[in-house]
């Protein structure tokens, strides 16, 4: 994916030193949920109760989707972490009536909780469904307040939240960079999910650093943008799952799942 490095520097963005991004290697994700819990610990995400799950209102800024293929015993399950793609041409941004969403000069899609009136139009328009509305007030038992991260606001009820690419860590690292007077090295700065991920399926870095890991990974043959056809110009690059036995929806293959690899939507198809 040669163009990933030149991936969108969005409208009006003044040249800034950094352009943050992530590469997610689908081949490495084991579905372990470490990133999900790390994100919750870092970003003061409210406790998801059983009721939230029953009502499908659970809040996760990064979620692991699991897709089935095939039927027993030739069955496969695959995992893919999905979080905000920090789109260069973000469908969520122009639909917000109050400018609560803005593209930062460093390639982030920034949500300003203060401004959000909670129309959820952005939620509809995000093709990746990563914008979560906080239906209920965030509450923790008093003793758990001790754990809350003071670098991150506790959001009030009635607004949309999503992955900030751990903006608080980016800000801190930049301050540190300014203080020490030298640029940070690739990997010095990590969001909570990438930091925790045991298999390093999530790699964070700076697209403007030519030698950064994300640039080198995104130059490989496995790189793709999720839902590229929508023209959202995501700032996140995925690396394809490798499956030597993959047959797509073709027929037989010795010992590997073949049929029903994917489903076709009904009625007529091409």
């Amino acid at each position: 994916m040669a163009d990933a490095a030149q991936a969108p520097v969005q409208s009006g963005a003044v040249d800034s030193l950094h352009k943050w991004g992530m590469v997610i290697d689908v081949d490495l994700c084991t579905g372990c949920q470490a990133c999900v819990v790390a994100c919750q610990a870092e970003n003061n995400i409210p406790l998801n109760t059983a009721d939230h799950f029953v009502k499908h209102r659970a809040m996760e800024w990064i979620r692991i989707e699991r897709y089935w293929e095939g039927e027993f015993p030739n069955v496969k399950a695959r995992f893919i972490p999905v979080t905000c793609q920090h789109c260069g041409n973000a469908p969520c941004e122009p639909v917000c009536p109050v400018y609560a969403i803005q593209h930062s000069t460093e390639g982030l899609n920034v949500q300003t909780y203060n401004r959000c009136v909670g129309t959820r139009y952005c939620g509809n328009n995000c093709p990746y469904s990563v914008r979560v509305f906080n239906w209920e007030p965030h509450r923790w038992p008093e003793s758990l307040h001790a754990q809350l991260n003071p670098d991150v606001t506790v959001r009030t009820q009635g607004l949309i939240e999503k992955c900030s690419m751990c903006l608080q860590r980016i800000n801190r690292a930049k301050r540190e960079e300014a203080r020490q007077g030298r640029p940070m090295a690739d990997g010095d700065l990590q969001p909570a999910c990438a930091q925790a991920c045991p298999t390093s399926a999530i790699v964070f870095g700076d697209w403007k650093d030519r030698n950064s890991r994300i640039n080198r990974l995104a130059n490989g043959t496995r790189a793709y943008h999720m839902l590229d056809e929508l023209g959202t110009q995501p700032n996140l690059v995925y690396l394809k799952k490798v499956d030597p036995n993959y047959t797509g929806h073709g027929p037989e293959h010795a010992g590997a799942p073949a049929q029903h690899a994917t489903r076709s939507l009904p009625v007529i198809s091409g």
Binding site: P97, Y99, R115, C116, V117, G118, T119, Q157, G158
Partner: peptide
């Protein structure tokens, strides 16, 4: 329907110039 109805004022009316809060005319809303 909005999450914070008391804030819908600046959804349509630019009132808080000091904080540069005004509606985004790109939005169908």
């Amino acid at each position: 329907h909005s999450g914070r109805p008391w804030r819908t004022l600046y959804w349509e009316f630019p009132f808080d110039f000091s904080r540069a809060i005004w509606p985004d005319v790109r939005s169908a809303l």
